[in-house]
């Protein structure tokens, strides 16, 4: 929000490329939608609220998005892409799969805590923002499956693990985060790291090895 005033050029005075401005406008609208959604809930938010919060013209909103829902879906896409980027970046810095789960989850929980409005929008409000948003949410969970699935190669009984294991692990992790957000405990989410890593690793490597990985 502090960025908003400092980077907004006065009308007609900017010499920035059109593409840069468009990108920047989109990001600002997305941030505004997330803030409004987190504050009032998706149903109550209007395009006018978003426009006001973003400090842009109504026309600019419609240059970028066709509707509130369109903007919401773009917000989800933005957050998932950013979350995945951070998770993968953190995970590739370490070697073993166990350490990668630990580092990736740490990066994810950190992102959630540092962007509370975006987190609430994409993890809580997305569930009640209509069928398209719900479908998008479901797809976004799928994106994390391959990261866990590698654990089957590390596991001594990898071939016998339930086919749906990754889906249930990811669903469990998101449920815990969802609960913390609705209880207003978003700031404490990062503290859940050891238990969530253990929860995710136990089916693959057993509880003892999972505990060691979090130590």
């Amino acid at each position: 929000m502090t960025q908003r005033t400092s980077t907004r050029p006065a009308p007609g005075q900017h010499r920035l490329s059109r593409e840069f401005i468009t990108q920047h406008q989109r990001a600002r609208i997305i941030a505004a939608l997330a803030e409004e959604t987190a504050a009032q809930g998706y149903r109550a938010v209007t395009v006018a609220d978003v426009v006001r919060r973003a400090g842009i013209a109504r026309n600019t909103f419609y240059d970028n998005f066709s509707s509130k829902e369109d903007c919401f879906l773009a917000t989800q896409d933005f957050a998932v892409e950013e979350a995945l980027r951070r998770v993968v970046e953190a995970a590739t810095k370490v070697d073993s799969w166990q350490a990668r789960v630990d580092a990736g989850l740490a990066a994810f929980l950190h992102y959630v805590t540092s962007e509370p409005a975006l987190a609430r929008t994409c993890i809580v409000e997305a569930l009640s923002a209509g069928p398209a948003a719900l479908a998008r949410y479901e797809e976004s969970l799928q994106a994390f499956i391959p990261l866990f699935r590698i654990g089957r190669k590390v596991s001594p009984h990898g071939e016998d693990l339930p086919e749906t294991l990754e889906e249930t692990i990811i669903g469990g992790v998101f449920w815990i985060i969802y609960q913390r957000i609705i209880l207003g405990e978003t700031e404490e989410i990062e503290q859940l790291l050891p238990e969530l890593v253990e929860f995710a690793l136990t089916p693959y490597v057993g509880a003892e090895a999972a505990r060691k990985a979090t130590a």
């Binding site: 479908a135 479901e138 889906e167 692990i169 669903g171 992790v173 509880a207």
Partner: peptide, 27 residues
């Protein structure tokens, strides 16, 4: 030994994971 391995949120995560899988199939 087993008890020491369970965390306070184990049950919540299990329930959440189970329900989320069921919802996904319904969707």
């Amino acid at each position: 030994e087993v008890l020491s391995r369970l965390s306070p949120s184990t049950e919540e995560a299990l329930v959440g994971g189970m329900v989320s899988l069921i919802s996904r199939r319904i969707i």
